[in-house]
Each structure stands twice: as C-alpha cells, then as structure tokens.
C-alpha cells in the first residue's frame, strides 16, 4: 500500500542545490565582510580563519589544552548523560502525573515552582552539593531537559481520547492496563516532541554548564578561547555546537518516524 519514493528525484536535487547555495552565499558574504573589517570590531574571524583553527585543533591541544575530538566527546558525554537521565525520570513522572490525579495534586505544585528557575542558577548549589565534576554538569543539563520531558508527557496523556479509554474499560481492562496499553502509546508522539525539545536544550545549555570548572568540553573551549583572545576558536566552538545539534535533530527525526509508524488518528 505504501508508495516507495524514488531515492533522488528532480525536485530533491533542486532543493539540495538551493541549500548549498545558501551556505555558499552566506560564507562568501561573511568572508568579504571580515576581510575588509566591516563587521563591528576588527576581531571577527573570517570563515577561512575558522577553518584554519579547525584543522589546527584536530592535531594540536592549544590554547585550551585538549584536542578538538576530546572536547567534543567530553561535551557529548555530559549532555547525553543529562538528557538520558531526564528522559528516564521525566517521561514516566509526567505520564503518571497525567494519569493519576492524586500524584498530580501531590507533585505538581512543587514542579510548577521549580519549573521557572533557570537551570544555570543551580550552579552554585551544585558546586556545594556534588562538586564540579562531570556529575554536577550532567545534573545541570538534566534540570534543563527534565522540564519538557515531564510537561509533554503530562499534557499528552491528558489528551488521551476518552473514546479509546472507554473501549479498554468495556473490554474489562484495569486502570493500570489502560494506562500502559492505551494512555502511553497514544502519548508517544507527544513524548517524542518533548524529547526533541529536551535534546536541543540539553545541548545548547552546554556552554553554561561547562562554566563550572571544567577541564575539557566545547563550552570550556569557547571560554578558553575568550580568555586567550582567540576569536577563531570561539567561533569554531559555536559552529561545532550548532552542527552537532543539527545532526541530533536529523537522527532523532528518523528514529521518531520509525517508532511512530502506526500514526495517530
């Protein structure tokens, strides 16, 4: 029944070309402006300088003391552990809160107060509680990613169609069975939306988390670049964060499509 798309259609080519063109134009414009010092401050690096920094950072540890790949892996490790923890704790909590009224009444007031507190403002407390290691940074990321995980699962399961719940009840299903087999599956698209927001924010919160005394990481590299007046390294860090975030989104969209294949009504 499914119509298989051809791998590469004429339109695909057209749109790919347009995307590439956008990048080329953007980079050219940036290069010209930077070379002629037309961007505010003479200090702005041009794309070619950033590229040089990129190649330099592959083999050299200066100025921050790590190879580029070490910085990337460290950051990935921190943000992934925070994100995974947020999903493991946040999604079930949101689902249960949405389904069981009592738990909702119990947890929600506390949750609503914690929600508006920026994750970064926890940093001083974290230093006192768990020090400045990987765990502390992962916890900061966790706090950022946790909120959308809870909120989306909560809102999603509350929107479970009453008709479907009635179907389960008529066939004699218990409340918990209905929760597991009707509530949760019908919330899957919303859970994924929440996870996507969580993933994006856990990655972009990285620089702030690595302001804690870090010794490696992309955020750390940016900070060190600033301290040493290496604008090219700062911009390199920014671009790599953006690029990896983009890869995340793409991979996540593919996973989402596979999991949500049944579709909703």
């Amino acid at each position: 029944m499914k119509v298989k798309r051809k791998f590469f259609e004429k339109n695909d080519l057209k749109y790919t070309l347009m995307t590439v063109l956008t990048f080329v134009v953007f980079l050219m414009l940036w290069q010209v402006l930077a070379m002629n010092n037309l961007i505010v401050g003479e200090y702005t690096p041009s794309p070619s300088e950033v590229l040089e920094a990129f190649i330099f950072k592959i083999y050299n540890v200066g100025p921050d003391g790590n190879l580029l790949i070490t910085n990337i892996l460290t950051s990935l490790q921190i943000s992934m552990s925070g994100f995974v923890l947020a999903v493991i704790i946040g999604v079930p909590l949101g689902l249960l809160m949405g389904w069981y009224r009592l738990l909702d009444r119990f947890v929600r007031p506390i949750f609503e107060i914690i929600r508006p507190i920026p994750a970064v403002s926890w940093i001083p407390l974290m230093i006192v509680w768990i020090g400045v290691g990987t765990e502390a940074k992962a916890v900061i990321i966790f706090l950022t990613a946790f909120i959308p995980c809870v909120l989306n699962s909560y809102t999603g399961i509350r929107q479970t169609s009453q008709a479907l719940i009635n179907v389960a009840k008529v066939y004699g299903a218990s409340n918990f069975y209905t929760f597991l087999h009707v509530g949760v599956p019908s919330t899957v698209p919303m859970i994924f939306a929440g996870m996507r927001i969580a993933l994006a924010s856990s990655w972009s919160c990285l620089v702030a988390a690595e302001m804690l005394a870090a010794s490696a990481g992309l955020g750390y590299m940016i900070n060190m670049g600033r301290n040493f007046g290496r604008a090219d390294v700062v911009v390199l860090g920014m671009i790599i964060i953006g690029f990896i975030g983009y890869i995340f989104t793409t991979v996540f969209t593919v996973i989402e499509k596979i999991v949500v294949r049944g579709g909703t009504i």
Binding site: A163, L164, N166, V167, A168, V170, Y171, G172, A173, Y177, H181, V182, P185, S186, V188, G262, G263, T264, I265
Partner: peptide, 29 residues
Amino acid sequence: NPQMGMVFQKTGLLPWLTVMDNITFGPRQ
C-alpha cells in the same frame, strides 16, 4: 462487564495496533 460487547460510534480503534491486535484486545488483556 466483558460479557457485553460494544461497537462504538467513533470506531474506537487503537491507531498503533494492527487490525488483528485491535480485535484481540479484550481476550489478550
């Protein structure tokens, strides 16, 4: 009561289950 079967106006099929899994929801449960 499972001794009463019901056919719903809005069909009430679970969209993430196949036809077979939808039909066997009651006994499976």
